[in-house]
Design a binder for these strands. Structure first.
Lengths: 405, 405
DNA sequence: CCATTGTTTGTGGAAATCCACAAACAATGG
DNA sequence: CCATTGTTTGTGGATTTCCACAAACAATGG
């Protein structure tokens, strides 16, 4: 039997193209772009598995499936060569026997074509499939360029937002609509700081587009910083953003063996607060740098708590506006008697006044800790049950450290 | 027997005068000014009791004795009339039988003369004693005027110090020496705020001079404020200053039935910090006015703790630099559900995280409190074990109250 | 050298906290 | 109306904290 030659006629759309291939191969066809977004699919109804259905329904390949395809080495292989490969059953994700091929332009992969192998393919089919992939290149390329152009526009708008160049909420919403992006109801700015200038732009872009937890209308890369706008129709919570950051940094670590630090600023509804949220995210990273130990699990600006004040307070402290006699006395005592009252107080407060936990951290007996605390109140002339004084001492203590850096 | 007439000859000093009276009456004589400072005393050695010895040794009547003489009505009586009175034994304070008289100039008492009644006095002696008192007036008056002039100088210098017009420590020390005041090693500025303009200047001056706990090189009255410089050679502690303020306010309440609020600024060694200490004392009073409940037992600037920051933070808050989503969420929740999560958190933190105490204050069951706290962490998206966030929330909460006033 | 003070660790019992679970009731939205 | 959710109060038992007291040892100053 001779295969139908799809290249003889003109095609208006990729949909039509997919349909023709499907008819030629007698099996369902799906075309994706490089980020596993659905580009086109055939309407071949028989023999369609769960994986394909969910891909089509959500107009992208579900993350679970992408992960699985990475783990089983399918995607890596597709990214290495343009040869069609046979993908075995992965019943856990509802994916059955299929053939996949990547679409190339020079050294870049533009997308993928998937065919469910309903009837066993021979050499003929494989050859045809390769030709199909080559023929798809141009179509996809146009799509790619259009997208690329759009992304450049996005970049420009995003930077305007980050630097506060568009002030009114309405104007910002307008920009979103012009770029055909839905206006976010709730958003937060997320920043990932890499140790070096980011070179893995392609892969990161790929990662972001395949992690489908959030709607990310904008993202950009600035030197060693990856900046995202994360949006959601439902209220964003600190917790979800934290897990997003953890999972992203984990993934980066896994893929590139690079340690990155992530943070997010305020969660807002007002679009004009994007700049503020961005600055807050940067502020978190700065604080994390100064207090690596205390802020290890902190990612959100909210979580910074009193550290939010520190720049301001430090400034005043350096003007001599806030001295702390208690602190001075404790410091003098520590120095004279080779004790560690200050550290004791710090750790104790860090542990939220939990004796056991603090004692463990300090490697001392609980009673020793209690004794020291009593001593601190005597030496420092501080009422240990007065919250205000304790907070002040704690803040001043941290400020000293903060100021040193 | 005729008494020796002391008025026949001239006297260079009050000491000599006292000596003559002593010889005339055959008993020890002590002359004090209106503030019970020793002015002169005879060297008559026999029959001198403990009270007299300690008065002479410290060059003033000990406070314990003054208190006792007030309580037994001796001093009030002396302040009412110029008649000599017989003071019965008060063994508890080592004071034995004596005769006392006040020295008058117009309607003011300039001082007192004390005679220990070693041999029973008759009319003759009493008459002579009255003449002696009258003769003392002029001598004491000169002393009084000299003192008064000196006090006016003091006032001027003190205000210069309070307003920071003398900058260098050396210059300030020089001023102290010029006024024949010993240079304080440790000092603090204390301010008492009366409800109305202070009219009881004389009595307050008397009180201050008779309360001998501290060296008070300067004091002044400004409208309804009494400002003191309290000094000591040994290090001043917060505790001693607190008890001073309490005892002074108690005394004012007792004497004039007036409620006054007292405060003190920073305790320093550097004299150029007098202005700062003064401002801090005023700052304490301002804060006490805004948070009467929380700051009831607070008198020192140190004790203000985080309230020290409040003016600064409020300013920033009004600039919109510090929002607190947690607070907003809790406020919204409280309003919607008629709950009191914010107050709960505030009281709980005020109680230094003590569940029982806070529950009692809130009139709720301990478990209810625990439940609410869990709720607060859910609703406010706050990690209840994160000290920084809790402090921030607490501060923001107080700032709202602060800002309202 | 001794006496004093400061520091760490231990013991043991009273008090407080934590936690899970349950009953009772109010408020809410369908 | 019911079902659900939120709120308050209660019970009971494991764990932790609080407190007073004591033993051991180091550092200090006379």
């Amino acid at each position: 039997m001779t295969l139908f030659d799809p290249f003889q006629t003109q095609f208006d759309s990729l949909e039509e193209f997919a349909e023709r291939i499907s008819k030629g191969l007698h099996c369902p066809i799906t075309i994706e772009d490089a980020n596993h977004r659905l580009v086109a699919y055939s309407t071949h109804t028989d023999d369609t598995d769960v994986a394909r259905i969910s891909t089509i329904m959500s107009r992208r390949v579900p993350e679970k499936i992408i992960n699985s395809l990475w783990k089983t080495g399918v995607i890596p292989q597709l990214l290495r060569s343009g040869e069609p490969i046979r993908v075995p059953d992965i019943p856990e994700i509802g994916l059955y026997n299929r053939i996949a091929i990547s679409i190339w332009k020079n050294n870049d992969v533009l997308g993928f074509i998937w065919a469910i192998e309903t009837n066993a393919w021979g050499n003929e089919q494989f050859l045809f499939f390769k030709q199909v992939a080559q023929a798809t290149t141009n179509k996809l390329l146009q799509l790619h360029i259009r997208k690329h152009r759009k992304e450049e526009q996005n970049q420009e708008v995003f930077w305007k937002l980050l630097t506060g160049h568009i002030i009114s909420d309405d104007h910002i919403a307008e920009q979103f609509q012009l770029l055909q992006l839905s206006v976010p109801k709730n958003f937060a700015t997320v920043v990932f700081r890499f140790q070096e200038t980011i070179k893995e732009e392609q892969q990161i872009s790929y990662l972001l587009k395949t992690m489908q937890q959030f709607y990310i209308p904008f993202y950009t890369i600035d030197q060693n910083e990856l900046i995202l706008l994360i949006a959601s129709a439902s209220p964003l919570t600190v917790q979800t953003l934290k897990t997003f950051i953890s999972s992203f940094t984990d993934k980066i670590k896994e893929c590139f063996r690079i340690v990155v630090k992530g943070s997010f600023g305020g969660i807002h509804k007002q679009l004009s607060l994007i700049e503020k949220s961005y600055k807050q995210a940067l502020s978190v990273l700065a604080t994390k740098k100064k207090f690596p130990d205390q802020t290890e699990t902190i990612h959100g600006y909210q979580e910074l708590g009193i550290y939010q004040f520190f720049d301001l307070l430090l400034e005043q402290k350096q003007l001599g506006n806030f001295d702390n006699p208690t602190l001075e006395k404790l410091q003098a005592y520590d120095k004279k008697h080779q004790t560690t009252l200050m550290e004791t107080f710090e750790v104790f407060t860090d542990c939220d006044n939990n004796l056991n936990q603090a004692a463990k951290l300090l490697n001392i007996h609980v009673n020793t800790l209690a004794y020291r605390l009593k001593r601190i109140s005597e030496v420092g002339e501080i009422q240990i049950n007065n919250v205000h004084e304790k907070m002040k001492l704690y803040i001043d203590l941290k400020l000293i450290k903060y100021g040193r850096m």
